[in-house]
Each structure stands twice: as structure tokens, then as C-alpha cells.
Design a protein around this nucleic acid. Structure first.
Lengths: 336, 336
DNA sequence: GTGAAAGCGCTAACAC
DNA sequence: GTGTTAGCGCTTTCAC
């Protein structure tokens, strides 16, 4: 990190700094021989323009701040992959902050990076933030004219570009798929009831049931609030409703836990009970049986978020914000 | 991003820039009343010192470049989590690049960030890089005096700080555990034979077998080279060796595939066959039966890597590099 | 064809 | 107690 500077090159060449700078850019002003001399020495010392100096001069960093609730979650990891690909292609770097679903960490990250460290933000709202409806930190950032794109977990309250999937439609489709397969009692298991996306999925589930004339049962919704509670909650569900023949879970840990318990209770999958999960991650492919899921197309979401942000950075004037919807997709495997 | 500057504050207050700067820092030189006036206005405009300007002035970025082979891999994601935690605590930000196990992307990332964008690097070598033994890009970076810490997939050829687990010992322990449970024919399945860590794990496996006087069989090592080949390779293994009663896999997809095939062939787990995987990830906890694994303590690795790097950045002189070994741990579940 | 100077936003040594 | 100046490394306008 003892980088050579224009100043040092200029001194060694007995030229001025500006001449060296121009020579390196093949300026028409500079004598061809000088250009060669300069380039030769620059090469020798592996000269590269200092990024920080350029950032200061250009008043931009070509860097995007990405704030993600949980990097161990396959969905978020894959969105990040998409963001990184698109950003790199457009010449941007990614600074990553992990909110761990905490409001405080999210707010702090936003604050730390809003000192000119980045040109804009891509984020998905932390669970705690969404539960507490504390959006002031987002408003602050937008108030400072930082471009911002929210994905997946977004909020109506915030005015910015967004990338989402249609959770309502996806849940509707999943539920309807179960109905098409003559399922008579379908339960929904959700760990994310506090989130807007969780609420949309419930609505889609209910709508699908209501729109089906042959379906006789009431919606049956089970909430899981603690990581430790999966097994007990699902056990209770099976105990109280031993005629369940379909499960739609808003996450795969729930779905797979349900399959395990169903199997241990003697159900055959998918003969006696069908199960659909959410997110096309590794567990869904490796579970037994492999799990039918709603795939959110996380890579596309990431790419779209990045391209929206970069466009916004380029033309920071436009007043109209867009909400892009990425198609979700039912991937049918052996659990249905 | 229309940040207010000292200059603007100074103009509005009819003071000089340096007075404003000092006032904001409670300098003893400045009149208390002036300090208050300055602070009030600064607060009003939410003044924050421009990070880029500070970086230029201080000749450091307080940013670490992290280059990771695959963010969808739970192990790497968790290491990243550890790096982020430690780095944030010490006031550093993380720029992330994903090499996708490609040499070209790894080299390019290193190049892009070595223009003063970061103060140092943390990375795990891309698979392709390790297969091709192309380490010139690392040497370049070190030659430029950039501090660098490698974790998990490291190379003897490169002189820098490292954080690893003892793959040999871990594999030895896993194999020995199977031997203690009277397993008579233990196979090793590896997807990472090209990697140094893969080779160490094989050595540990072989050593454990050799040191056990009662073990009669030869080491039985199966390599998987393509993502599509898991099922066929494992099927062949079972066909050729129907007396296998133990499997140690260097990754969990192999381990779980093996369990699936074993089950479908009528084996009971762990009665007829025991299986051990590598990495304490979600799949290992949710598989049926839950998989016994070697846990690499990824979070600790990340933290250690970050703290090593930050120490190195602080005192860039020291000539001696350390290799920290993080304890791996056998987590026993129901597959053994 | 080359160089001086200003400026990006900030800090700090040094005047006054 | 306040201001001037130089400098971090670079680009670019304007002189010569």
C-alpha cells in the first residue's frame, strides 16, 4: 500500500504533474516521446490512479451499500450474488452490512455509510424494523438525496424504487396447486407473520381457498415465532387436525419439519399429505422427499435492484419511483 | 447525496473553514460561543465530515476487501458474518467480491481493489486458482504491501497470515469415531480432491484407518467432480461395495445423497451404515436422519481473520506471519 | 508541448 | 480566538 503517485513519477521524469497525468491519458497536447517515457516509468512502478483521490474529485464512489437481514439465508445470499454480478458489470463495488434483522444495526449501517462512503443503497428491511414500524432512518437517508432501492421486504411508507415478488399471487398459486390435487384440508404455516410479505402470502392462501367452491374447511393458519418452536407447533397442529392433507409453508424449515413429523406419524408424502415450501434452496432439493417450492428468482431480484439503483444514481432527478415485480415460479418436486 | 461541507457552513457563519473544523472538534482554541454557533448550524444541516476526503487525508479507507469463492455456501456465508462482526467492531467496512471459484474473477477483484480502495484483503482461494496453481495475483498484491489474510483454502506458496482448521485432525477424528462404533468398511466421498484441504482430509482418513489394528479393509476413496454426478457416483459405490457400513463425506450434499441412496437400498441409518458430513449447516440439521458433522466454527474463523488483518494493517512492519488454527468439532447427531 | 493553478473536502501547523 | 496555508492525489482549465 505504498502506492506510487503522479508526483513521484513527475519528479523522477523531471516533468510536471499535469504533464504526466495528461501523458497517461494519451492527451493530444503531449509529445509522443514524452508519452512513451511517462508510460514506461508508470508501468515500471505499476502506477494506478489512487481511487480515493478520484472519488473526491468526481464526487462519487462507484460503490453501493447493501444492507441485508441475514446472509445465512439462501434467498438473501442469492440476491446478493445477483447484485454483485450486475454491479460489477456496471463498474460498481459492493459494501455489505448485515443487519441481523435488528433495527439498531440497520440504522447504524445506514448512518455509517451515508457520509459519502457509497453512492446509494440496496436493502431489505430488518424484521425488527418492520415489526416496530420505525422507518425514520430510511426517511433520513432519502432526505439526504441518497438513491435507495428496497427489495423483497419493502414498505409502502417509504418512497423509493422497489423490487418484489408478488407474494399474494405466489401463495395463491401454491394453494391452488394443492386444491387442484384434491386436497381437502390445507394448513398454512408461517414464521413471518409480522412481515408484509408474510401477510400477503396469507391473503393469497385465503383467497385461493375462498375461490374454490369445493373446498369446505376454514383457513387454518399456524404461526411460529421462535426458532425453537418449530417441532412443538407442528406437532400440535397434527394432533389437533389429523385430517390435514396439505401444507403450504412460507419457509422451508417449517415445510421440512412438517414433512418429518408427518412421516413419523405414518403419513406418506405425497399420497396422504402434500407439502409446499418457499425458496428454492439446497434444503428443498435435498429433503426427502424433495420439496415442491415457490422459487423467488432471487438472482433476478438482485440484478434488477442493482440496475434500478445504478440508473437512479446516474439520473438522480426523476421523481417517479418504480416497483418492479419479479415472477415467482412454482417448482414441482416429489412432495406434492 | 448533496452533502453540506465545511466550506458552506463557514460561509453561512462568516467564519473560516478551519475555525469551523476546530469548533466541531471542541478545540480549546475556539471560543465557547463560537463552538455553540457552529455546532448548532452543523446539526441543523446534519453535517458529517465527508468520508472520501478523510480517506484521502488519512491515507486509509477503513475498508477491507473480502473475496469469497461462493456466497451460497453456508460455510463461507458464516465466515463472512464473522468477518463483518469483528470488522464493524473495529470500525471497518467490508467490500465484498465473489470469485465464483474462478481464477479470472478472483484476480480481477484483487486488481480492482488494489488501487487504494481498501486497506487489506481477506480471502479464500478459488477452486480454479488452486487447481491451476496460479498464485501470481496474490504475489502482486503482497508485493504492493497490501496486508492479506487467507482462510480455509490457503496456500503454502503464499507468505501471509492465515486462518485454517486442522483438516487432517478433523478427518482423523471423524474416521476414528466411525471406527469406535465398530464400522468395518468406511468409504470417503470427496468433491474437493483438488483442494489442499481436500487432500488433508483424505490423509487424516487414511491415517485413522491405518492406526486401527482391527480395521481390515483398504481405504476406499470416491471422487465427485461434477455437480450432476452425485447420484450416479454414489450409486456405483453402493453397487460395488454392498458391505459398506460407514461413510465420511467432505461435504454435506454428498453425505445426504449417500444417506438417501442407502435408505432407498434398504439400509437403516445408523444401524446398518453410519454417515458423517462436513459443515454444520442447515441441511445437516434438517436431513433425515440429522447428520453428524464436523463443524468448522466458521464464525470464529471469520473473526480471527478480521482481527489478524486489522492488527496487520495497524503495524504493517512485522515480518513474521502467523497461521491460526481454529478448532473443528464433531457434532454427533442421529446419522451415527 | 509543457506547466501553473485551482479545486474536490478535510485537517493541522503556523501566523496573526 | 480566528484565519491562512499547505497538503492528501488527482483532473482540468488556462497560461506561456
Amino acid at each position: 500500500m505504498s502506492h506510487i503517485t503522479l508526483k513521484q513519477l513527475a519528479a523522477e521524469l523531471n516533468l510536471s504533474i499535469s504533464t504526466v497525468s495528461k501523458a497517461l491519458k494519451d492527451s493530444y497536447e503531449i509529445n509522443e516521446k514524452t508519452i512513451q517515457r511517462v508510460k514506461k516509468l508508470a508501468k515500471k512502478y505499476h502506477y494506478r490512479p489512487n481511487k480515493t483521490a478520484l472519488n473526491l474529485k468526481n464526487r462519487q464512489t462507484k460503490t453501493i451499500g447493501v444492507i441485508i437481514p441475514n446472509i445465512l439465508n439462501y434467498f438473501f445470499a442469492k440476491v446478493l450474488l445477483g447484485i454483485e454480478q450486475e454491479a460489477n458489470e456496471k463498474g460498481y463495488q459492493i459494501i455489505i452490512c448485515l443487519s441481523n434483522n435488528k433495527y439498531s444495526k440497520e440504522a447504524e449501517s445506514l448512518l455509517l455509510l451515508s457520509d459519502g462512503s457509497v453512492d446509494g443503497f440496496i436493502l431489505s428491511i430488518a424484521k425488527e424494523t418492520q415489526i416496530q414500524h420505525r422507518y425514520n432512518h430510511f426517511e433520513d437517508i432519502i432526505g439526504q438525496d441518497y438513491p435507495m432501492v428496497m427489495f423483497d421486504r419493502v414498505s409502502d411508507k417509504i418512497n423509493c424504487d422497489k423490487v418484489i415478488i408478488n407474494d399474494y399471487d405466489a401463495a395463491y398459486e401454491a394453494t391452488d396447486f394443492l386444491l387442484q390435487h384434491q386436497r381437502k384440508k390445507i394448513a398454512l404455516i408461517s414464521t413471518i407473520n409480522d412481515l408484509n410479505i408474510g401477510k400477503s402470502r396469507i391473503k393469497g392462501y385465503i383467497a385461493a381457498l375462498n375461490n374454490n367452491k369445493n373446498y369446505k374447511n376454514e383457513p387454518l393458519i399456524v404461526e411460529i415465532h421462535q426458532k425453537t418452536a418449530y417441532t412443538t407447533v407442528v406437532n400440535t397442529l397434527f394432533k389437533e387436525h389429523n385430517d390435514i392433507d396439505g401444507i403450504f409453508a412460507t419457509d422451508n424449515v417449517s415445510a421440512i419439519t412438517a414433512m418429518k413429523i408427518a412421516k413419523s406419524n405414518g403419513y406418506q408424502i405425497p399420497k396422504d399429505i402434500s407439502v409446499i415450501g418457499f425458496s428454492n434452496n439446497k434444503i428443498s432439493r435435498l429433503s426427502c422427499p424433495p420439496l415442491t417450492v415457490i422459487s423467488q428468482n432471487a438472482l433476478e431480484m438482485g440484478k434488477k435492484a442493482a440496475s434500478l439503483l445504478i440508473d437512479r444514481i446516474a439520473t438522480n432527478s426523476t421523481p417517479h419511483f418504480t416497483t418492479a415485480t419479479i415472477d415467482a415460479e412454482l417448482i414441482v418436486r416429489e412432495s406434492t
